[in-house]
Computed example of a mutant assay.
Amino acid sequence: MYSKHHFLISVVVAALVSVLTTSAYPWWLLLTVAAVVGVGIDFDHFLVAAAKTGGWDPIRRCLRDPRIVLFDQGEIFEEGEVGVTNRLLSHVVIAGLLVGALAVVDPFLAAFVALVLYFHLLADLVWDVWDMADS
């Protein structure tokens, strides 16, 4: 799934939480946190690719052609550089560590981030299932 999709999903989650709960946080801060977390978790793809290939070619591709970051994300990684299972596993590990750390500091924020990341992972799973069905 692409960043623009994760951004939209994260914004919808933030909007719903802002409307349906009473929070010490203003709506714009929840929106910002959701966007950063909901899109930012995908930076782990670069780490997964580096671990699998031993190199940083995807980052080099982005630096050579920054256009692909916004307009052609399918060109960032070569086939097999990340992989569905590795990508989803790294998301689960990061989400668990992040939510666990936040729970110690602020339970509401931890639950909010968990919700954003839940929908990120759900969207990835649905996308991958549809993508496999098309193959």
Rank of each mutant, 00 (worst) to 15 (best):
Y2N: 12
S3G: 01
H6D: 07
H6C: 06
L8Y: 14
I9Q: 07
V11C: 12
V11Y: 05
V11A: 14
V11E: 02
V11R: 03
V11D: 01
V13T: 07
A15R: 04
S18K: 14
S18C: 10
L20H: 13
T22Q: 00
Y25W: 12
Y25G: 02
Y25P: 00
P26G: 09
P26T: 06
P26R: 09
W28C: 04
W28Y: 13
L29I: 06
L29D: 03
L31A: 12
V33F: 08
A34M: 06
V36S: 01
V37C: 11
G38V: 13
G38A: 08
V39T: 14
V39N: 07
G40F: 02
G40V: 02
G40D: 04
I41E: 08
I41K: 06
D44E: 13
H45P: 11
L47F: 14
V48K: 06
V48H: 03
V48P: 00
A49R: 04
A49E: 14
A51T: 12
A51Y: 07
K52N: 13
G54S: 07
G55W: 04
G55L: 04
W56I: 01
W56V: 10
D57M: 10
I59A: 15
I59S: 05
I59V: 15
I59D: 05
R60A: 12
L63W: 15
R64H: 14
R64T: 15
R64G: 13
D65V: 00
P66H: 00
V69I: 14
V69S: 07
L70P: 01
F71G: 10
D72L: 00
D72W: 05
Q73S: 09
G74Q: 09
E75G: 04
E75L: 11
E75T: 02
F77D: 03
F77W: 03
E78Q: 14
E79V: 15
E79I: 04
G80D: 13
E81F: 00
G83H: 04
T85R: 12
R87N: 15
L89E: 06
S90W: 07
S90R: 00
H91I: 05
V92K: 00
V93E: 03
V93N: 09
V93F: 11
I94K: 06
I94Y: 04
I94M: 06
A95R: 05
A95D: 10
G96V: 15
L97Q: 02
L97M: 13
V99H: 02
V99S: 02
A101R: 11
V104Y: 11
V104S: 05
F108K: 02
L109R: 03
L109Q: 03
A110Q: 07
A111H: 05
V113T: 05
L115D: 11
V116W: 01
Y118Q: 06
F119G: 10
F119K: 07
F119Q: 03
H120T: 09
H120R: 06
L121F: 07
L121Q: 06
A123C: 10
D124T: 00
D124C: 10
L125A: 11
V126K: 08
V126Y: 14
D128Q: 15
D128S: 14
W130Q: 13
W130K: 13
M132P: 06
A133M: 13
D134R: 13
D134I: 01
S135A: 14
S135L: 13
